[in-house]
């Protein structure tokens, strides 16, 4: 009488297959640093010295000064109660082949705790040599003053501030021709002291 072989239980077969797959994947992942322990190079945001300038996007930004003040940056704007002006003087250089419009370069800097809603001095009022140009042409270093309103608590918490350079990708529309911006991300940061000019306003 032939000996009858028992077939392994299906659950056991499944468990063996699972262990085999996980083992193989682990062997591949091990020399690569294991699971989620490696940061892709593209995800690392370089922190640079202020003198080096922020680079890596369509714009280079050299930050000259960051200050809080109660002095109005223009003759029209007024402070809301309990707030002060946060003023960043910088020089922008377009590294793309085409001009960058005001509506785009107004967002070139990312400031922690500050949103575009705080930019009560709006893009058309960004000061550029006392002027209001619609465009910055490629390769022309252009002084620009960014102005936001922040509250006193922000000032107390920020003797220094880490400014980020916003990178983005330019997409040219077809139906309505023009530039559109996608893939906004921080591409470099720099830490700058915040001058308190409230007493000298």
């Amino acid at each position: 009488m032939p000996e009858r072989r028992r077939r392994p239980h299906p659950v056991l077969l499944g468990a063996i297959a699972l262990v085999a797959v996980l083992g193989t994947v682990a062997l591949v992942a091990w020399p690569l640093g294991g699971w989620e322990t490696a940061t892709p190079a593209s995800a690392r945001v370089p922190n640079v010295e202020p003198a080096e300038g922020l680079r890596g996007g369509l714009l280079d930004v050299a930050v000259d000064r960051v200050a809080v003040t109660t002095a109005s940056p223009d003759v029209f704007s007024e402070l809301e109660p309990g707030r002060v002006w946060l003023v960043v003087d910088a020089r922008l250089t377009v590294r793309d082949t085409d001009p960058v419009a005001t509506l785009s370069y107004q967002d070139a800097l990312l400031v922690p705790g500050v949103t575009s809603l705080d930019a009560t001095v709006h893009p058309e009022q960004l000061l550029r040599e006392g002027d209001r140009a619609s465009w910055i042409n490629p390769l022309v270093e252009t002084p620009v003053r960014f102005v936001w309103q922040v509250d006193d608590a922000w000032v107390a918490a920020h003797p220094t501030v880490t400014l980020g350079l916003c990178g983005w990708s330019r997409v040219t529309g077809v139906i309505i021709e023009g530039d559109y911006w996608t893939d906004r991300r921080e591409v470099a940061t720099t830490e700058v002291p915040v001058l308190d000019l409230r007493g000298s306003a």
């Binding site: 082949t97 085409d98 465009w135 042409n137 490629p138």
Partner: peptide, 13 residues
């Protein structure tokens, strides 16, 4: 060449 420059349309000038 590959670069494009916008003419100045500032309201100041």
């Amino acid at each position: 060449g590959e670069l494009s420059f916008a003419g100045l349309d500032s309201g100041e000038a």
